[in-house]
């Protein structure tokens, strides 16, 4: 197992996985408690539109994804504020529209066959030093903002109306949340791909919330679970020679089912 990490690509993959757990655990917890899983999915999928346009223009695909997901996230935040009723429909439309734009622009890009699979399912073993730097930047940004605004985020997530009645400025938290989600989603796409981002964002927090009832410990447990899933998934995928992102999510999913079972056992015992 030691010789496994003599490969530089595995070192990068593991380092990237550990670092991304920080943003994924914190933002994932917020996504789960705010019930914004569907919005996170919408942001992830509309990012593909940015990837397609970036290829077409010969620009960096990750930059394209960043612009698209930020735009989509802020727009969804705006829609959510405006009309509470049709938000899910609009998210669903953007979800599909983003993918469609991406596919069309990649078709139009001459002489360039992009590996769609790596975008859909991630390529953690292809992580570069640039990706690592980007993840570190996003981690620092997320940790800093969430630490500074912790009490406000907790209050706003619990009861946005009351928060706004007390402090009118607190409505910016919705947009801050959307920006943080978009950033986390973009760096996670590199790792597990667009399809599996939602799983890695929500499964650790969903497991943790069954056993932990305070926000800060919930974030920490989510980070640790994410580290566990990524590490185990990465190592196993090397030996089994399968896609790491998919295996990571499969392991996370298995743990989730196990946690539901465990929770049921605890409940019946204490009852």
């Amino acid at each position: 197992m030691i010789e496994l990490f003599e490969h530089t690509f595995m070192q990068y993959a593991l380092l990237g996985g550990l670092l991304i757990s920080i943003a994924a655990g914190i933002i994932g917890t917020l996504v789960v408690i705010q019930r914004r899983v569907f919005i996170a999915g919408g942001i992830a999928h509309s990012a593909y539109g940015g990837v397609g346009i970036a290829y077409f223009l010969g620009a960096s695909p990750i930059l394209g994804a960043l612009f698209f997901s930020l735009g989509a996230g802020l727009f969804m935040g705006f829609i959510e504020r405006r009309s509470r009723q049709r938000v899910d429909t609009i998210i669903g439309v953007m979800w599909a529209l983003g993918m469609a734009i991406g596919i069309l622009f990649i078709d139009l890009t001459k002489g360039y066959v992009v590996d769609l699979m790596s975008f859909l399912f991630g390529s953690i073993v292809a992580i570069s030093p640039f990706d690592i730097a980007l993840i570190v930047f996003v981690d620092l940004f997320v940790v800093f903002l969430v630490a500074v605004l912790y009490k406000d985020i907790l209050a706003y997530s619990f009861d946005p109306e009351f928060s706004e009645l007390m402090d009118r400025k607190s409505k910016v938290l919705l947009y801050i949340m959307m920006v943080l989600m978009s950033l986390a989603v973009v760096v996670m796409i590199r790792l597990v791909g667009v399809i599996l981002v939602i799983a890695l964002l929500t499964i650790p927090a969903s497991i943790a919330e069954q056993f932990v009832q305070k926000l800060k410990p919930l974030m920490i447990v989510s980070i640790l679970l994410s580290v566990l899933f990524i590490t185990v998934g990465l190592v196993l995928s090397y030996y089994l020679n399968v896609t790491a992102g998919a295996l990571i999510v499969l392991i996370a999913g298995a743990f989730y089912l196990f946690s539901l079972l465990l929770r049921q056992v605890i409940k019946t015992r204490s009852a």
Partner: peptide, 21 residues
Amino acid sequence: RFPITAFEVVLMGRLRERTLG
């Protein structure tokens, strides 16, 4: 299932004095 204590809920009443940040 929201992860917040009763005391933390009551503290929200102080948000008008302790604004964002």
